[in-house]
Design a protein around this nucleic acid. Sequence first.
DNA 1: TGCGAGCGTTAAATCGGTTTAGCAGACGGA
DNA 2: TCCGTCTGCTAAACCGATTTAACGCTCGCA
Lengths: 352, 352
Amino acid sequence: MTQRVGIKDVARVAGVSAATVSLVLNDRAADRIPPSTQERVRRAAQEIGYAPNRLARSLRTRRTHTIGLVSDRIATTPYAVRMVEAAQDVAREHGHLLFLVNTGGDPALEREAVAALLDQQVDGIVYACMWHRVLEDLPENLPGDAVFLDARPAVGGFPAVVPDDRGGAIAAVQELVDAGHTRIAFIDIEEDPAPVASGLRREGYLEVLRRAGIEPDPALHVRGVSDAAGGMAAASRVLELPEDRRPTALFCFNDRIAMGAYAAARHHGLQIPTDLSVVGYDDQQLIAAELDPGLTTVRLPHYEMGRWAVEVLLGARARPADDEGAVLMPCPLVRRDSVGPPPTRGPGRRRG
Amino acid sequence: MTQRVGIKDVARVAGVSAATVSLVLNDRAADRIPPSTQERVRRAAQEIGYAPNRLARSLRTRRTHTIGLVSDRIATTPYAVRMVEAAQDVAREHGHLLFLVNTGGDPALEREAVAALLDQQVDGIVYACMWHRVLEDLPENLPGDAVFLDARPAVGGFPAVVPDDRGGAIAAVQELVDAGHTRIAFIDIEEDPAPVASGLRREGYLEVLRRAGIEPDPALHVRGVSDAAGGMAAASRVLELPEDRRPTALFCFNDRIAMGAYAAARHHGLQIPTDLSVVGYDDQQLIAAELDPGLTTVRLPHYEMGRWAVEVLLGARARPADDEGAVLMPCPLVRRDSVGPPPTRGPGRRRG
DNA sequence: TGCGAGCGTTAAATCGGTTTAGCAGACGGA
DNA sequence: TCCGTCTGCTAAACCGATTTAACGCTCGCA
């Protein structure tokens, strides 16, 4: 695993000094060294397969061309994995290597991870979370130029990017309103404390209703445990409402809830999308694309956010001003086959 | 992001030389330096918050305490993500940092990634694949002490770990036989070339039938595209067989296929597990645990394999002998609720 | 002949540690 | 008193690159 050939070997073969080799290979030679010598050096390097020891280089230049991604669990759960992919892609595009550290959210481990990365002289650190979070306590050794991904520190001054959950919810619910629905339930998740996304998506939901002049019905906002079983239970509750209060469409907090909603619909003999329309959130490939019919949902822009974070970190994208707050990345609607017009025979439209 | 305090600062504060500081902090002082001095040095280091620059240290010691994980896509797909988690865990336990590189399977990128890691002087490289694969061509610059994860190089000499697909299939099908089934279909996937796992799981399937004295019925081995729709189509084909040839149990190549099999069962008015038993493979949380009823499946030991690979790489676990071939990691059966005895009224048992 | 300028190249310092060889001083024994 | 040993510490080399200051040479010109 040791580096065989060094710059001195190249120098010897080319019949010049190590300094010349360095100059040539780093294109600092410009007009100081004649093309003939440059050619000789390059050929020698090529010939003996020279590749500079990046450690030595970094020690001198104080730039390692490495960055660290410290996350709670994103690299180890199937949810937000594309953020890692994006981070890696951008790193590679800029000739950087990516250190990955998972902390499981343990503050002590986080501190330790940041310290280890700093000891390695990384050029920058991205602090990423699996879900949209607001962070009260940060590792106190986090460098000032860290960038936050899918998380927003309570204190200002750090660039941060989070999904536009409110906007995504608006798109989702608008899709249902556009299809003619007026009785739209929001199958939220039950968690304490309520996740940031929950509040924001609810806001979006209410916003669309308001714009459409639909009076929100508190009975249509239910909560369930965030899995298919929970979604099934919660969805059942609204589907069992008396016919005139029953929703014709469900906006589900996430795709797993939606998966449960599908089961509930089956249970109640309702066909999707003929009798009931469903929209999810997250666009989880393993669910949304595999359900039958395919689930219309909102995509979390993990890849885009990952790119943004590392691009800002590496200076390839302008750092937002300190007082700008977190950047909101749009969540696009992904249309599949779970939305249709409300059933004509069913609970009719009231105002829409 | 620069390191403020260096070893010289500690030396100055403690009133000794840098050499002494180094000796003390690396516990090479033993009996050469009196406790009082050691104490003084340590206190000074603590006081000014000294942490050694790992780059400089590595340059001298020729050990970076970093390893590289180059993979096709594991870090960016929800499937085998736990391998990354394991790799990271083991790395941390041994005081190492993990470089992550995804190549998407592109040989040029792979070569480039390996080169970049070697330039960084990593202590070792794990070459990982998303699925159990046999590799014909390796990046030619891969160091001789690389370890393979979920992949087996065609050439020998490299430690490698893969899942025991044959054993997992045996456990799965045995579970069905033990429940009393004799007509068991294998819903395989259709891919060209056939994945290694496909052949191995088929072997396991046939092995159990043989042991149980059940004549394999070629009509019960069908293939479909590897997603829920494909699984539904393929499962439908066997469920539409005449009643006396129809299977009472399905062994599905993976959980997505099984998800489709659930849909097919519903379509044919069959209740799981009363009318039809189903076993999957992979134990994909998003599917197996969320289906209703919960899917009995076989777990791919991603975490265990990831640990194994990095432990071997770091010498924490004995390297298998060169002629041993790939290590087979057991795939445990995960019992949930999709297996029951065959229906009594249904297609009866023939020999079992 | 002497001098300055420009050209091509390199010696040497540097980054921040580790490691080896050895120095200075105290002490003990002959 | 002298020598050897032991104790406690440090100077200096080293890892492998980058970077700066400057050297030697040639050439042109006065």
